[in-house]
Nucleic acid binder design. Structure first.
Lengths: 232, 232
DNA sequence: CTCAATAGCGAACGGCGTGCGCTAGCATGG
DNA sequence: CCATGCTAGCGCACGCCGTTCGCTATTGAG
């Protein structure tokens, strides 16, 4: 017999009041942790602490950390919302690309993790997105087979751009500096590294900072131009 | 006085015969280890063992594991050789893209690591490659500023394609299965995941395996088409 | 009321990156 | 010739990590 205050509210909460821990909760908290403290901070112990639970309790809901990461990836893909129904194909795909890029910018760790996990494309949210984009390509006039290749090409560009940008963002965050300070400090290093190549020195000297959005759009439009040209 | 056999050959070899460990050696061995056993197997202890040295000895030549990885990345970029001098711009860039892709295929761990390390573009080998490609864009008629954007776009595509392909390759290797077995086993899973979307089911059913090279070239040509169109 | 099932937990294992202080051998200056 | 200082390499230890295992407490079902 427990000699405790006989109130429902004083009764120890755990047990199976309701399961107290669920996969959804764990995944959501993992995303929060990743966003606020970065990839290194995601450990089972840390995540458990954040949830007020022991580290090993998580294994009742998730087979391994790798699996957790697969869930986490699909979770953030779920944030991609570019499904306005009757957009013209090019506008629709542009919206998707922008939405994915925005997601990666919000969650820079995604880029680091995409290279580590295989088969990330099996998650339901990724499936939904693929289906939508594939439909847009078909609407444009591509055969299903070619639409697949076109989709791969477009996603490869978006992901590649995301990786580059996210690597930069992560470095910046880890340094704790402002963007200006960072650029200030990086410039001499970059120029020194580029020194043997006059063309690179010129390019880096002229670089205007913060043109990321422009650069992304430049490549995106280029890829879409190339795809549009195939429709003759 | 050491009471040992008085021969040079019996004398203990270490000390400063020659430094016995060098950054070049360490980096080269790290690449070998990564290639043969994958990213997880790269630990300082493991690498030390491979070199017949203690783990902590490596820190005389490399500041940290992160720094080692930066060196390793530049090392494999050094394998990219697509510098035939007087190629027409498009042929030259195609060669570069293929060479980078081949490198990533040889070293699939690169894709996983590119997202983790910031500023990988500062290494001398990367600089050399950037300079060469930038020159090709200028030769095509792009201004330096636009050549930079074009280069970013092209590299984003190549890297993105590399990440996707490498994630797949890594999964395959880790599973220890042959490509056929793997596809055999994956197909039902993929189809189940795609079930809600008839279009995806159709696409995955028709998928012909091993069309990776084709898919890469499709996207590459598309991007180059888009770039060529900008030259009026 | 009993009982199998299940959520959560604490301890423990083997491995990780790396800081610290030690040793052994070298080059140098007296 | 020796003394000295420098440096490459190493063993140890610390605090993490992912994960396994066996335990407890609680549950809903019969």
């Amino acid at each position: 017999m427990t000699s405790e205050i006989p109130s429902v509210w004083a009764r120890p909460k755990r047990g199976r009041e309701q399961p107290a821990l669920s996969r959804e909760q764990i995944v959501a908290e993992a995303v929060k942790l990743l966003d606020s403290e970065g990839l290194d901070a995601l450990s089972m112990r840390n995540l458990g602490k954040q949830l007020g639970a022991g580290a090993t309790s998580l294994y009742r809901h998730v087979a391994s950390k790798d699996e957790l990461i697969e869930f986490v990836i699909d979770e953030v893909y779920g944030e991609v919302d570019a499904f306005s129904v009757d957009a013209e194909w090019r506008a629709g795909l542009t919206a998707c690309a922008h939405s994915v890029r925005a997601m990666v910018t919000r969650h820079p760790w995604v880029a680091a993790v995409l290279g580590q996990v295989g088969l990330s494309y099996l998650g339901p949210n990724v499936m939904r997105l693929s289906n939508h984009m594939l439909g847009l390509f078909e609407k444009a006039g591509f055969s299903l087979a070619e639409a697949e290749k076109a989709l791969s090409a477009l996603l490869a560009y978006v992901i590649g751009a995301g990786v580059s940008e996210a690597a930069w963002l992560t470095s910046l965050t880890r340094s704790g500096l402002t963007e200006e300070e960072w650029n200030e400090r990086l410039k001499p290093i970059t120029l020194a590294a580029a020194a043997p190549y006059p063309r690179l020195v010129a390019a880096f000297s002229a670089a205007d900072d913060g043109a990321d959005q422009d650069a992304f759009d430049y490549g995106l439009e280029t890829m879409l131009d190339g795809l549009a040209a195939k429709l003759t």
